[in-house]
Nucleic acid binder design. Sequence first.
DNA 1: TAGGATATGTTAAACGTTTTCTTTGATATC
DNA 2: GATATCAAAGAAAACGTTTAACATATCCTA
Lengths: 347, 347
Amino acid sequence: MATIREISERTGVSIATVSKVLNEKHGVNAETRQLVMDAARELNYRPNLNARYLKSGRSQTLGIITEDLTVFNAPEIVDGIAAACDEAGYHYILGNLRFFKRYGNGPKDLEESTSLVHGVVDEMLSKQVDGIIYIGCHSHVVVSLSDHAEPQFVCAYCTSLDSSIPSILYDDQKAAFEATERLIRAGGRTIGMIAGPTDSSHSYNRTRGHQEALFAHKVPYNPSLTLVGDWGRDCGYTLGEQLIKSGATAIFAHNDLMATGVLDYCNANGIEVGKDILLIGFDNREISTVCRPQLSTVALPLFEIGQKAAHIMLDILSGKGLPAEHEIMLECSIIERESTLGTRRKS
Amino acid sequence: MATIREISERTGVSIATVSKVLNEKHGVNAETRQLVMDAARELNYRPNLNARYLKSGRSQTLGIITEDLTVFNAPEIVDGIAAACDEAGYHYILGNLRFFKRYGNGPKDLEESTSLVHGVVDEMLSKQVDGIIYIGCHSHVVVSLSDHAEPQFVCAYCTSLDSSIPSILYDDQKAAFEATERLIRAGGRTIGMIAGPTDSSHSYNRTRGHQEALFAHKVPYNPSLTLVGDWGRDCGYTLGEQLIKSGATAIFAHNDLMATGVLDYCNANGIEVGKDILLIGFDNREISTVCRPQLSTVALPLFEIGQKAAHIMLDILSGKGLPAEHEIMLECSIIERESTLGTRRKS
DNA sequence: TAGGATATGTTAAACGTTTTCTTTGATATC
DNA sequence: GATATCAAAGAAAACGTTTAACATATCCTA
């Protein structure tokens, strides 16, 4: 592979000058520049980035750590980061922890998963990355990072617990507010909710948003219409049945899977979703477009989270400092499909 | 960040010896080794990989190019490659072309997409990768690679057209054979097929496998029961209707989407899928577990394709040469769900 | 006890860049 | 014509490794 020295020899221009041309620095006249560029093209020159990074100590590279690339939300976030990097002329390298295949649902053994993360972080530091973006939801794994190292960290999709590490999240509460509002506007009067497990911050915030919306629209809040599920489809079926039998005419489920369970119940019992009952899910997974009737839901700004995380990181690296807020919330969008058709009230 | 020199200074051992210890080479006695290792730990030493790669000219790194990371099959393949690399102590870097967001369905402009690929390849070569694995389905983009560069290429999920580039694929024909056989065994007598577009090699091979299975089981082949679709759900609906009205009692669809379309038609018309009609799809996408009744389908060995591609690459790099076959076929597996329950004949 | 082997260490030259400092030569100024 | 100014180009020292080639000490063999 051609080197800068070969260009120098062929053109008779010194190495230093060649370097200047290649880095588009000024202080070299047009003829010399052209001479060098022609030679570079002829020799099919490609800079040796390892040499460059070594010398300059920086790599213009962001590290991206995913807990598991095969989980539904990860690729889109990575894509967002990649897009931002491409645009900014930055590089990125990916480290995939492969949590899911290793541990099933989530890392059980804190020590093991921490050392896994440290391994990847070490490798990235060895490659002189300028910063690392962590994508995941097991924030306890991240905590241990802060004492670990010099580089800048940013969390995407999870909160960092450490206030010096910015995190980019989506706004559960607002999304839940809007989802519930949508049900109300579509004519829902008695509104039930199937929440996720109580220990989830997502459930907590979505529940708050839901309640706020009821309050804002003066819909009476009836605690017995809030049931707690386990994110699974089956519980959607049984809890949906329970809610409907309690008189609910609209249901907000904390994810698409549980919402699909409700759908199953309705389809099996001749209840027409979108008319007899209004239903909205959360996540905008493929299921929601594929079930019948199609499910209205909340779309997560995954790409945008990645993009924003990268932008924040690049800002920090360029010396603009940390963002004002430690947690940055991005807005979700409501995707309206058949399951919330209803009888629209004038907004 | 601590360097090898600092370790050398602190321990009084020469730089060369420190390097030997760190690289686990022999020719250094146990005491010295321990001394160095202790110092390395105390100083929190991390090798500078850029320096190492620069000096040694190799990077123990594989480049992975994806046409689009957000497309359903890519993450799983990448995961397979990553797993194989982890195991072999290799690193990987990812280059995501982002075709989908850039071009919608596929690259229209050959020139532009080619230059996109070249850009990523150049970057990887600049980082001294030992080989590049290309994941995608637009093989025409790959063709132009062979004349481009020195590094080793391997194609995953697509055929390479160039016989010096091994490609790892799954066996469409065999999978289609087995899918059809499954329909026959489940009691299907009049078997229809909804194929993909005629210009797709997938469609071609699946059609051949289908016909072979009919022949092997002495089921008469009726050309009017083979219809050509466009991969979309809607055509599944209309073509499914047509097949059923022509007397088909079992249908093999070339993908899950079209199969779901058939399902829609049946559900809308009181035809019980799995009993009145047998149905099998292809791809094992999330849809197939989520529709009702659940769809039997063909699962692609995506993880295995990635893994195999990496293994082949590592073999080549370690001097074991190219695999005997230019195209390596991995087997799909049939996933049996509700839509092919039928009345099982003795096998 | 000389003459190897063998084990352990060290010296120093690379790898391909970037970058500081210096040199060169031309032009302008007095 | 001597000197200051300035743009352009070059020389050389790094960056942190690896690795050949070499040096030394230890031990064995005859």
